[in-house]
Computed example of a mutant assay.
Amino acid sequence: MAKIVKGSNKFYIGDNEENPKAQITFEKEDDNLINIDHTGVPEEMGGQGIGSKLVQTVVDYARENDLKVTATCPFAKKVMEKSDDYQDVYQQHD
């Protein structure tokens, strides 16, 4: 799988943060909560688990930084809600 790189409020795959091949973006809601607002994986990269790996990367980042994660992105929300492994950091969005 391609390398996932940390950008500005995002993790992405590709050589350029401004034009990534795949990405997951988030925004800070408050001091200890981030919201995943978009996950983008092009069709030609679909079916490889890249979207789920991007969610996992944000969860790892949150754990390392003592943050909670919520998701307004439907894909990320679905991934987080169905995995018991994410419940320590997942917080329902209001």
Rank of each mutant, 00 (worst) to 15 (best):
A2Q: 15
K3H: 12
K3R: 13
I4F: 11
V5L: 11
G7E: 04
S8V: 06
F11E: 01
F11H: 06
Y12E: 10
I13H: 05
G14L: 05
N19G: 00
Q23M: 15
I24C: 04
T25G: 11
F26H: 00
F26E: 10
E27Y: 10
E27N: 14
K28Q: 15
K28N: 13
N32K: 14
N35M: 02
I36Y: 07
D37T: 11
H38D: 11
H38G: 11
T39Y: 02
T39P: 07
G40A: 14
G40S: 08
E43H: 14
E43K: 15
E44D: 15
E44G: 11
E44R: 11
E44K: 13
E44S: 14
E44H: 13
E44T: 13
G46R: 04
G47S: 08
G47T: 04
G47V: 07
G47F: 14
Q48M: 12
G49T: 04
I50R: 09
I50N: 02
G51F: 06
K53T: 15
L54A: 06
L54R: 07
V55M: 04
V55N: 02
Q56L: 11
Q56T: 09
Q56Y: 04
Q56V: 01
T57F: 11
V58Y: 03
V59R: 13
V59P: 06
D60I: 00
D60T: 08
Y61R: 05
R63N: 01
N65I: 01
D66Q: 12
L67S: 02
L67F: 04
K68L: 07
V69S: 03
V69K: 03
T70R: 05
A71K: 08
T72R: 02
T72V: 08
T72S: 15
C73A: 08
C73K: 05
P74S: 06
F75G: 04
A76D: 01
K77Y: 15
K77L: 13
K78G: 01
K78W: 09
K78A: 13
K82N: 08
S83T: 06
S83G: 05
Q87C: 01
Q87L: 00
D88E: 04
V89C: 08
H93R: 12
H93D: 11
H93Q: 09
D94H: 12
